[in-house]
């Protein structure tokens, strides 16, 4: 009788789903949790960065370096635009299309803002400086965008541009194995190094 056979398959299915839930849904991730805590605990916990005992962020997660009123702070290297304002609870991008007039307006405005902020012409502003990332939490900027900001940061901190450039160099990550991905400058690492070298007052 087909119904009876289907019934038996359903009972087996219920048991199978419950068993899979326990083994694959609880045992497996908890074992992996244990392994992770042994082989790379800092990474497994989120690559958190602490200063003076307080967590100041994660080296993988970008931050906004702006004043409480939202103005870019000249003494810090600026991250890319973010569709989520670097809110770690709401990752995501703009999803605006390549012909979107909203995106055209946003890019135009950012180009003139970044150009004025750094004393260059809009044509000199690199693409990553005026476009939002996919995650909204991009920890990196292109080496070109970092280079663009050196003079401004050095002036705001009363430091020599060469010293700031040296710190940029240290915070620059090349392509993995020399050819995978793209080179980037980790902005949080760089700004932490600036603070250590020149003090936080700016």
């Amino acid at each position: 009788m087909p119904t009876l056979r289907s019934g038996r398959q359903l009972v087996a299915a219920v048991r199978a789903v419950l068993l899979a839930t326990v083994v694959l849904g609880l045992v497996y991730p908890l074992v992996m949790f244990g392994i992770a805590q042994v082989i790379r605990p800092a990474g497994a916990d989120g690559s958190l960065v602490s200063r003076n005992g307080a967590v100041v962020g994660s080296s993988l997660i970008g931050q906004a370096f702006v004043s409480s009123s939202g103005d870019a702070l000249p003494e810090y290297f600026q991250s890319r635009p973010s569709a989520s304002d670097y809110d770690g609870a709401a990752s995501g991008g703009s999803n605006l299309g390549p012909n979107s007039s909203d995106l055209v307006d946003a890019i135009t405005e950012r180009q003139s803002q970044v150009a004025a902020f750094n004393g260059v012409t809009p044509a000199d502003v690199p693409a990553d400086a005026v476009t939002a990332s996919s995650s909204g939490l991009d920890p990196g900027i292109s080496p070109a965008y970092a280079a663009l900001q050196v003079t401004r940061v050095a002036a705001a901190r009363g430091a020599a541009a060469g010293d700031v450039s040296a710190l940029v160099e240290e915070a620059t990550h090349g392509r993995d194995l020399g050819f995978i991905g793209a080179p980037y400058v980790n902005v949080l690492e760089l700004n932490l190094a600036l603070n250590e070298r020149f003090g936080t007052a700016g």
């Binding site: 991008g93 299309g97 390549p98 890019i107 135009t108 990553d128 476009t131 996919s134 991009d138």
Partner: peptide, 17 residues
């Protein structure tokens, strides 16, 4: 696309790394 041409590259929605 007009917006990406203005930016100079297709970096909207792309991670630098």
């Amino acid at each position: 696309g007009a917006a990406l041409q203005l930016a100079g590259a297709a970096t909207e929605g792309q991670e630098v790394r």
